[in-house]
Nucleic acid binder design. Structure first.
Lengths: 360, 360
DNA sequence: TTGTAAGCGTTATCAA
DNA sequence: TTGATAACGCTTACAA
């Protein structure tokens, strides 16, 4: 029962099911060289059908699993892709992660997931780990990342794709979500319905997407309703802040007939607060969210919202990343993905309450 | 500008920032052997403070990152842990994944995430990949997995932790969620409130947790309200099926005063349907969910629910896994985690409508 | 078309 | 206390 050596050397009885089989064992079993086995596994040189099937049979018989680490070491490249997100419990992420995960595996890579928790130090530690793992590429799907970390990644030859963290470059691709088109659709939708007095609940002004969305809203409003100055309330992208903003709106004394909110979580919070105050959505006030998180369709009424197509974002991000990994000389690309309005039940024409200059 | 070789050999000018530094380079820089460098990095043998700091300085100066693959190959163990879940967009998972991710990284491992999408074939492919990666351990956090896959993992010496996929064994730990205690609390809560006629919306009877929850409900009811036979409606754990079950309940002609639902998604669906039918929750009907997903606290009214403590599940699962990885001779453990009731606003005493034998 | 053998960057066993 | 050096399992020139 010699088990100490970690490897059981059989005398002549064929492969042991317990020992981990190496390429060499497969080669011996097939009666060929290790190079040949490697070539049939990787399709990297022509091998006659006969040897090929001998090898395949041997692989089968040995229940052989290639060792990824040995492979990475020998070839100098790994098949691991890193994904860095802020917080998987933020409802924006699950769909994105799912899409990225699928794309990554379809292309034969493996996915390492890290969750920064919005913590810069943790992000930095994670970038270090990615480099240690010699990942082929990293998808940086977080709102903020210290620029030095990005530099370090690029210096270490890691291919990168990110979401508006900078411009596309030699080894980096950039996915830019076009918030403005969706917001324009939203404002246009509300204005067509007859709304004029439209407020905005913005995301934190310290986060880029928050300010971009606010500016897009303002720009659309200026185009559609030039004579009104829309009220802006600021939240922090979380549910509770939507609630608070709604309270402020309620207390402001001049209720808008519609409100465009910078994300669904705040929109859902605002909707609840309005309803708790006795308003009916959409009869008394229309609400438009942003992102189209899963629960947007499940609220009552279902939320009209601008969709950030996360499945597409994930797919195209990995497509771009794989391109820069597999064609090392091609530069990164910039991919623009539009957002678009999904009309559900939280928007309707404003109630005709005060009809000015009405007779009698 | 010799860049072709991939490695730039500097003449005497110190380390190049472009080249990837190896242990050997650090050793040369520090004027010691590779063995010594390895020992200070891994704390695996005593090294004098002096050499130690020389090495540390050299590491710093070279901006050295150890190569995980070389390390895994040489040592025979990797620091990768695999996590297999069904679907990250199922609201049960984000919190679990977050907790697992934290625990894994705190312990110095890296996390490979895979999403089976409830697809057996995909699960099988993923198990193969885990083995190729020589992962130290795998957390199987999915409702179903073919037993042969589990066997294969164990045969390949991979440590495993799972959620009721079988019994704890030599290299496998089992996390068992005690559904019954939480459900008992829920039934007890409703009965104390005065409810007698309590229905159950069950999860699919083809899924283990669905049948366990139903049986726990039935057992509690038999204990508390022995003379009633509770109505059972079957759903499939999804939002829409909660809605459908509510419709069935509404159409049944005999409305219960409370309903215990097998998960929050269905509970939320049922709640919406009841509300759409003009019922008030909890005045007309009380609802208890199960899981305590994020949106349970955000619904209106906030959902009373039985909590599956996912943060704890994740933490303890990785704790158990790390134990079996780091102490190869210790057997796996079985960890029982209780569920418990969180009382929010969707439960209240039943309305006293028909008071039988009332005078006049 | 197939085989031989030199790395890949660590760890770990000995020896010094 | 430190240093040589042989693995680890694979890829990939280069040879045959």
């Amino acid at each position: 029962m010699n088990r100490q050596s970690g490897r059981v050397h059989e005398k002549a009885s064929g492969p042991s099911p317990l020992a981990t089989m190496r390429l060499k064992d497969v080669a011996k079993e097939a009666g060929v060289s290790t190079a040949t086995v490697s070539h049939v596994i990787n399709n990297t040189k022509f091998v006659t059908e006969e040897t090929r099937s001998k090898v395949l049979r041997a692989i089968e018989k040995c229940n052989y699993y290639p060792n990824v680490h040995a492979r990475a070491l020998a070839s100098g490249r790994s098949n691991i892709i890193g994904l860095l997100i802020s917080d998987i419990t933020n409802p924006f992420f699950p769909e994105l992660v799912k899409s990225i995960e699928s794309s990554v595996y379809e292309r034969g890579y493996n996915l390492i997931l890290v969750n920064t928790n919005y913590d810069a130090e943790r992000a930095s530690e994670y970038v270090r780990r990615m480099i240690e793992l010699k990942v082929a590429g990293v998808a940086l799907m977080t709102a903020e990342l210290d620029p030095p970390l990005l530099d370090e990644l690029v210096r270490k030859q890691v291919r990168v794709v990110f979401n508006d963290l900078g411009m596309a470059g030699e080894h980096m691709s950039n996915i830019v979500l076009d918030y403005a088109v969706g917001i324009e659709e939203a404002v246009n939708h509300l204005v067509s319905l007859g709304h004029r007095k439209i407020a905005h609940i913005a995301g934190s002004s310290s986060i880029r997407s928050g300010v971009i969305r606010r500016e897009a809203f303002l720009a659309s409003m200026a185009r559609h309703v030039p004579n009104e100055t829309p009220a802006i309330y600021e939240g922090d992208f979380k549910f509770e802040s939507g609630r608070r903003a709604a309270t402020e709106i309620l207390d402001s004394g001049s209720l808008p007939t519609a409100v465009v909110v910078a994300n669904d979580l705040m929109a859902l919070g605002a909707m609840e607060e309005f309803q708790a105050a006795g308003l009916h959505v959409p009869a008394d006030i229309s609400i438009v969210g942003f992102d189209d998180i899963a629960f947007a369709a499940l609220s009552s009424p279902p939320l009209t919202t601008v969709c950030s197509p996360r499945a597409e974002i994930g797919r195209r991000a990995i497509e771009a990343l794989a391109m820069t990994i597999e064609h090392p000389n091609q530069p990164g690309v910039e991919i623009r993905i539009p957002t678009y309005l999904i009309t559900r039940k939280s928007t309707a024409p404003p109630r005709k309450v005060k009809r000015p200059n009405t007779r009698g």
